[in-house]
Amino acid sequence: MRAFIFPGQGSQAKGMGKELFDKYPELVEKADKILGYSIKELCLEDPENKLNNTQYTQPALYTVNALSYYDEVDTSGEKPDFLAGHSLGEYNALLAAGCFDFEAGLKLVKKRGELMSQVKDGAMAAIMNSSKAEIEQILADNNLTNVDLANYNSPTQIVISGASDEIAAAKSVFSFGKVLFYPLNTSGAFHSRFMQESRDKFRTYAKRFKYAEPQIPVISNVTAEPYKEGELITNLPEQISSTVMWSDSILHLLSIDKDMEFKEIGHGNVLTKLVAGIKRHVKKEQQAQAQAQAKNNTRTEPVKAAEQAEPTAQPKAAAVSHDSVVEKVKAWNAKHPVGTKVKSSMPGYEALETRSEAVVLFSHRAAVYMKGYNGYFDLDEIQAL
């Protein structure tokens, strides 16, 4: 299976889309009429240094992402099995899924960028090599109460967003060991509680448009799951002030197909690098769990002679069927809601809390995602408290 993923704000650069504007002149002309300026000039020359300003960045990225998608489809003749986009990029995923046309999407993005750019006195920073639970604890211990977790980009990269003074103060408390702190060049505290006014205004504007249900599954930033019927008008405004669940979105796709092919559509390779990091983390988790399980299964007693029969005399273990795993997942979800407290049989993980419904992972594992741990546990390894 294959997923197309579209980048968002932060991937822009002067010169992006150079080979595309002349290839799709009609769409470029429509964009210029909607925006009131030359999108080609903004992206290729940026004479007034506006490309990094949110209200210009978002329409520019949306346009380049859209032209890149049309070019990919025109060239290859193939469409993806799944779609996802990082923040602004989700609009391109929904465009590709047939939820609205190019013009409607650009109008939505233009308004979104304008509203988000009006929010001042906020800042954002990326925290590297620290977990969600650790970040939340450090923020609480240092009384940084006006900071939210904005982006779960990968298990080792989380973005915080909030009041400018508290983001500045966070630099010193997140500079230890392998933990790194990177201030981001943004004009506001995006994807945080400080965007609620922009969210509400955008919701009012978004109701002017008609939307179709996705023709290709689109993973929502808000839920990290495919859009359900009727969710679009709810999730798009909510996305402005809620956490971007990017890492969980990729994990969801990998749970559908462990060999999922990801192709970044647009400028740069920011998302390609994040996906590679998420895959490495999943592999390490699997290795660690396998080692822990092997350790638990190691028998300390001598093997009795009666247990040393010829292998041919022993019945072969039945392969776990996909249907049985699906039933196990259904049974768990029917009985245990998200947020259930559990304990694990693995040492060191006695107190956990689920942060998702159980899913069929890699076609043969019944697993559930754990809050704070940033990883999946097999249902056979845990017990509800």
Results as ranks from 00 to 15, higher is better:
Asn143Thr: 08
Gly162Arg: 05
Asn49Trp: 15
Val119Asp: 00
Lys283Gln: 03
Lys18Pro: 03
Gly15Leu: 15
Pro80Tyr: 05
Leu95His: 06
Ala189Leu: 06
Tyr369Cys: 05
Leu253Gln: 03
Ala163Cys: 02
Ala309Ile: 14
Leu361Trp: 15
Ser345Thr: 10
Asp121Ser: 11
Ala351Val: 09
Ile135Cys: 06
Ala319Glu: 05
Lys273Gly: 12
Tyr69Asn: 03
Leu35Gly: 05
Thr145Glu: 12
Val282Cys: 10
Gln215Glu: 07
Gln289Val: 13
Asn269Arg: 13
Val218Trp: 01
Lys79Cys: 13
Leu253Val: 04
Pro47Gln: 03
Ile216Glu: 04
Val275Arg: 00
Phe82Met: 09
Leu144Val: 00
Thr243Gln: 09
Leu35Trp: 00
Gly8Trp: 10
Leu67Tyr: 05
Ile219Leu: 08
Tyr70Glu: 15
Leu144Pro: 00
Tyr227Asn: 03
Phe190Gln: 13
Lys178Arg: 12
Glu45Lys: 08
Ala358Gly: 09
Asp121Met: 10
Ala288Leu: 13
Gly122Cys: 03
Val320Ala: 15
Cys43Met: 08
Ala288Val: 09
Thr54His: 12
Glu136Ser: 10
Asn53Glu: 15
Ala366Thr: 02
Tyr376Lys: 01
Ile167Thr: 06
Met124Ile: 08
Ser249Trp: 00
Asp200Arg: 09
Ala163Leu: 11
His252Gly: 04
Ile250Cys: 02
Gly77Val: 04
Ser345Phe: 13
Asn129Ile: 11
Phe362Glu: 04
Lys120Phe: 09
Phe6Tyr: 14
Thr272Val: 11
Leu83Ser: 09
Ala331Asp: 06
Lys273Met: 12
Ala290His: 06
Gly113Cys: 05
Leu61Asp: 02
Met195Tyr: 02
Trp332Met: 01
Ala84Ile: 13
Ser130Asp: 13
Ile233Arg: 14
Arg280Cys: 06
Lys132Leu: 12
His191Trp: 03
Ala126Gly: 07
Ser117Asn: 13
Phe4Gln: 02
Gly375Glu: 01
Glu197Cys: 13
Ala13Pro: 02
Asn143Tyr: 07
Val109Glu: 04
Gln157Ile: 08
Ala126Phe: 10
Arg280Met: 08
Thr223Ser: 05
Met260Thr: 10
Ala319Gln: 09
Arg193Gly: 03
Lys328Leu: 01
Lys304Asp: 12
Val359Trp: 11
Gly266Pro: 06
Gly105Phe: 03
Asn374Arg: 07
Leu361Cys: 07
Ala60Met: 13
Val244Leu: 09
Val64Thr: 03
Ser11His: 00
Glu72Gly: 14
Leu274Gly: 11
Lys258Glu: 12
Ala206Lys: 04
Gly85Asp: 02
Lys316Phe: 06
Ala125Thr: 02
Ala96Asn: 10
Lys228Thr: 04
Glu307Asn: 10
Lys107Arg: 14
Ser87Arg: 04
Asp32Thr: 08
